[in-house]
Each structure stands twice: as C-alpha cells, then as structure tokens.
Design a protein around this nucleic acid. Sequence first.
DNA 1: GGAAAATTGAGTATCTTTCGCATCTTGCTC
DNA 2: GAGCAAGATGCGAAAGATACTCAATTTTCC
Lengths: 157, 157
Amino acid sequence: MPSRAIESPTVPDGDIQLESQQIKQAGLKVTAPRVKILSILENCGKRHLSAEDVYKELLSQQEEIGLATVYRVLTQFESAGLVCRRHFEGGQSVFELNSGEHHDHLVCVKCGKIVEFADSIIEERQARIAAENGFEIEEHSLVIYGVCSESGCQKKA
Amino acid sequence: MPSRAIESPTVPDGDIQLESQQIKQAGLKVTAPRVKILSILENCGKRHLSAEDVYKELLSQQEEIGLATVYRVLTQFESAGLVCRRHFEGGQSVFELNSGEHHDHLVCVKCGKIVEFADSIIEERQARIAAENGFEIEEHSLVIYGVCSESGCQKKA
DNA sequence: GGAAAATTGAGTATCTTTCGCATCTTGCTC
DNA sequence: GAGCAAGATGCGAAAGATACTCAATTTTCC
C-alpha cells in the first residue's frame, strides 16, 4: 500500500524546556519570541499556519511580539529545518512543523481543510521524470485542490 | 478570398485576424491591448511569461499599454480559458497559453529553465488519493524544482 | 556582572497585484 | 457612417505579504 495518510501528531501541552531545547539544537539563541512561536506551532491545534495566524494567536495571548519578528523567526526556523514553508494558492505562505517525512497536500477550495498524504508511486515517477530530463531534484511541491466531503463544501455554488 | 487588409502596415508579429478571432470567441471585446498581449504570448518565443515580462515586451515595442491593463487582460484571458496562470515559487505568477492538455512542470532553480511534462501514472494516483480522502479534484499543481543539465547550473555553488 | 554579539519592535520599503475613476473605444443601431 | 451605452483603458493610489533599517534590548559567555 504505497499511499498512506499522515495524521497530525497530537501534541502535548507547551513545554518551554523542550522548545528551548529544540531552538538551541537548531543553533539559535533561545529568546522569548522564538519559544512562544514554536509553542504555538506545536500546540495551537492546526498544523498549517500563516505568519498572520501566528501573529494573531500571539496577540490573543497578550504577547508583545511584532509581526516582523514572526516573519523573521519563521524564516529562521525554516532555514534551521524546524518548519516547512508551503506556498498554496491564495497569496500567503503557510508554515508547518517539519515532521521529517516528505508529504504532499490535498486542499479543499471551499473550507480550506488540508489533508496530508505521501505516495511512493508518485515520488518514484517524479524521480524518473526528473532523471529523463537531466534534472537533479531539489524539492517538489504537489498540491491537489478540490472539494472535500463536508456537506457544506459539496453544495453546488 | 482576396484578403486585402485595410489596417495600418505596422504589425510585426502575429496575425491580427487570428488573434481577434480568438478574443472574440472568448467572449471579449477586441481591443488593441488584448490583441497585442495575446500576440506576445503567442510569438515571443517563451512559453511562460510573468505579467511584468509581458509589460516589458510591450514597452520594447513602443506600445502604450499600462501595467494594470496587462494584469487585467491576463486575468480575463485566464477566466476565458485562453491562458493558464501558474504559481511557481519566487513571488510572481507566470502565464502560458492554454494548450488544452494538462501538464506539470520541472523548473531549474539555477537558470529558471522550465520543462513541461505529463504523466498518466501520476495523474491516476492523484485521482485515487483524492477519492480515498473524499475529495473531488478541481485542479492540481505539481512542480519539481531541481538543477538542469546545463553546465552552468550543475556547478556547485 | 559585564561586554560583545545577536535579536527585537516599529516603522518603512518593496514587490506584486488590484482598485477607483475619469476618459476613451468598441460593438450595435439606425 | 453617426450616435450611444456598455465595457475597456491608463494612471495613480491602495492593498496584502514580506523584507529591511536601526536604535534599543536581551542573550550568551566569561
């Protein structure tokens, strides 16, 4: 069965100790904004957040962290391999914790629901196609846009 | 059909007759900017152009067409099915004439070269994955980023 | 506890794309 | 062809996302 769903890990409550550890291991100084942002990524319940989402969450928690810092920190986390940045259609990028395993996405164009999946057959075909064209793959992005099974989404517009 | 043209003698590329036809069939009024832009998409040599690329090409041809119009026209062409808009990484979207057949892209991260490909196995897997997750596919986007075989690109940075 | 180096916040800048609106064209009619 | 309403254009301004500048603050290391 080459195709399997990847479920979001059920994250435990924020653990400053743990988050500081991860940040340190990533080679970054442990600062309040970084710990806080990582904690939100781990515990807010959603796996895919835009910088704006993170910022709003911070505001709702009375945190005094600027939007510029959110962008900076997310970019640093990306460079450090802690998070992955995705560019779905619709303007802004979304960030998700790096699960370590590559996967692609199914996005509902109605409700925005996101399902992750990995498929070895597709991966293999991609590798072959790249090779046939003399390309050395660096990364790839596969996003399937559609309508999910929610009744509200199925409704014809 | 002696096709003596009454129009001015200064239209270097394209066939105004033909482009006007396409625009009309798309349900749009035939205007100079639209004809000119379609002509550029058809004759400029590159298959993938950003709005900015089109605008620069217009400027180089001494055409007095505003950037806002370029965006508007491209968006209308997209709605009309004449062109497809792609969102590769790196900010701006690129437009290509709608060839009628779906295909995906290989993009060289060094030189920007773009290779199109279609793979029925991948398509089929995507359909299956969407179905397994209760999604009704609307469209999808698969882009493989890598380094092409050009010697300049192969060079390690 | 202190100094050097890194980080932050706030505002500004930039890039891409869209909007508002007065003016000009197109397509259709007579 | 001339007249007209609907639609299109140009330009500047606006918007949305993200990056940069820089002074002030915080972290790390000793």
